[in-house]
Design a protein around this nucleic acid. Structure first.
Lengths: 138, 138
DNA sequence: ATAAGTATTGCAACAATAGTGCATTAACTG
DNA sequence: CAGTTAATGCACTATTGTTGCAATACTTAT
């Protein structure tokens, strides 16, 4: 069990108070979260600080950015040794239309995609929308 | 060769001047386009009218909406008898990072995706980013 | 310990996109 | 032609994402 400080230091991010709080919040949440969720939670903190905190986390490879098709960028913790940017490691994301939560399905890699002649793939984003496990059983 | 009016009428959209112009523009473009592209092209037309025109087209199944990961919604013509909303008909979209155009790869269907227990898929969005055929050969 | 430099934070803006409410105009129907 | 319905234009508003700059806090060399 690593401390929050350790996690930040391992990713070469200086552990400031705000960063520790944001990291703690992300760690607790199982699903991906948006900037506005963070803003609401830390309602006495500055919007810009949260924005830049999360940007730092993304740059340093602590969290990855998710475009789940809602028009709002979501963020979720990277797995250890996660190589989000490498094509073969790309997993798919699930957005529940009922609870509106976005989940990383890290075990579900994106299948091989064939493109027409001349098209060169650099990055793939696959988002499935529907009802998540929690919502389908309740 | 259908007239513009016919296309609109077939989709139960009243053919107004603006709608005909917008449809003509969409038909000419091979790639998906954004609202701001339409706004720039019809620079003397009202933004709201264009906005509502395209919304009408989406509702009536004339065009489909594409989330290409740029944060800006794109629109492209549906194929004849296109059933965009039906899972089996979903094709993938390609966004070129060089020319920034988004293309429908209608021939490339989305492969079967396996989800964990309890997850129910309703819709799938697959966007590949990279270099398109035109940009890779020039 | 202190001065100088660097990193972080907070505040105030701005821009783009998406969307709504309402009045006006155009089109359609009896 | 009057009355109704649909479409348009204008004026806003909200949200998200983003930047510039000043104020603080943190580090490091002297």
């Amino acid at each position: 069990m690593k401390t929050l400080e350790k996690i930040l230091e391992n990713n070469k991010v200086k552990p400031t108070a705000m960063r520790l709080l944001v990291l703690q919040f992300i760690l607790r949440k199982k699903t991906a979260l948006s900037l506005s969720q963070l803003e609401n939670y830390f309602d006495n903190a500055d919007r810009t600080t949260i924005y830049r905190t999360i940007k730092t986390f993304v740059e340093k490879g602590l969290v990855h950015q998710i475009d789940d098709g809602t028009g709002v960028t979501k963020y979720a913790l990277c797995e250890e040794n996660c190589e989000c940017e490498i094509e073969t490691d790309l997993h798919l994301h699930f957005h529940c239309t009922k609870c509106e939560e976005t989940t990383c399905l890290t075990e579900h890699k994106i299948p091989q995609i064939n493109l027409p002649e001349g098209f060169i793939a650099e990055n793939i984003n696959l988002v499935v929308k529907g009802i998540c496990d929690k919502c389908s059983t309740s």
